[in-house]
């Protein structure tokens, strides 16, 4: 099994690196979101450092969702999805492989960009570390949950917006525990580990629910 799985991951990574710089655009969008927030809220550094983790998480959520609409649609447009469905490989693992590659190509750059953007928001070093760590653990969940939306909207011409609408409610728990853990790292009485472990659990749950649901949706979408 490992042969085809790694072949698929390698192909997806190659495509992500060669086509249109998808990872770069995601990071740029992340930067744009973080930049507009002070314009909306005012440049009060104390306020910004207090809501900084939330801003970073919302930015990561939005750029993950916006980058997901082509996850399966590109394959559907050129006929690859037919071959994928007929390949005789478990569709759930195929979805998992594609999510893994997509996360490496677009999620990891977001995580790497987060500490830099956190400086703009006047976060303390501990908070920067906490936000980056929670993003590292939590963004896979966003990709996996988003894959469900991507699979559901695969046959729609302009499915990107609908994808976001469908997925945002499902992503709320990830956001809550990601921000809670990051906040807890700096504010004294609250424990960091509890929300962080729940966040890990959410990522693991999405690693099951996401591929299973997305695979079902893709099977039904073929025609």
């Amino acid at each position: 099994m490992s042969g085809w799985f790694s072949a698929l991951v390698a192909r997806e990574l190659r495509l992500a690196l060669r086509v249109g710089g998808g990872a770069l655009i995601g990071v740029l969008f992340f930067l744009a979101v973080v930049t507009v927030v002070p314009f909306g809220m005012g440049p009060d550094l104390n306020l910004l450092s207090r809501v900084g983790p939330a801003i970073l998480w919302i930015g990561a959520l939005l750029s993950t969702l916006l980058g997901l609409d082509r996850l399966f649609q590109a394959d559907r447009d050129d006929g690859s999805l037919d071959l994928v469905l007929m390949a005789g490989r478990p569709m759930e693992l195929i979805v998992l492989a594609k999510c893994l590659a997509h996360w490496v190509a677009t999620g990891v750059p977001l995580v790497l960009a987060a500490p830099v953007l956190a400086v703009f928001l006047n976060l303390e070093p501990v908070a920067i570390g906490a936000v980056t760590l929670t993003l590292l653990v939590g963004t896979p969940a966003l990709t996996l949950i988003g894959a469900i939306g991507a699979a559901l909207t695969v046959s729609l011409r302009r499915g990107g917006l609908l994808l976001a609408v469908l997925v945002v409610p499902l992503a709320i728990p990830v956001l809550i525990f990601g921000v809670s853990a990051a906040d807890a790292a700096v504010s004294e009485p609250m424990p960091f580990l509890t929300p962080f472990l729940i966040l890990c659990a959410l990522s693991l749950i999405s690693a099951v629910v996401g591929p299973v649901a997305a695979a079902a949706a893709l099977r039904f979408s073929a025609d």
Binding site: L152, P169, L170, V209
Partner: peptide, 17 residues
């Protein structure tokens, strides 16, 4: 598919909220 995913998620959402 989405309804069932939502049904799985609703308790989690409730808990996290």
């Amino acid at each position: 598919v989405l309804t069932l995913v939502g049904a799985l998620n609703l308790p989690i959402i409730k808990f996290s909220v």
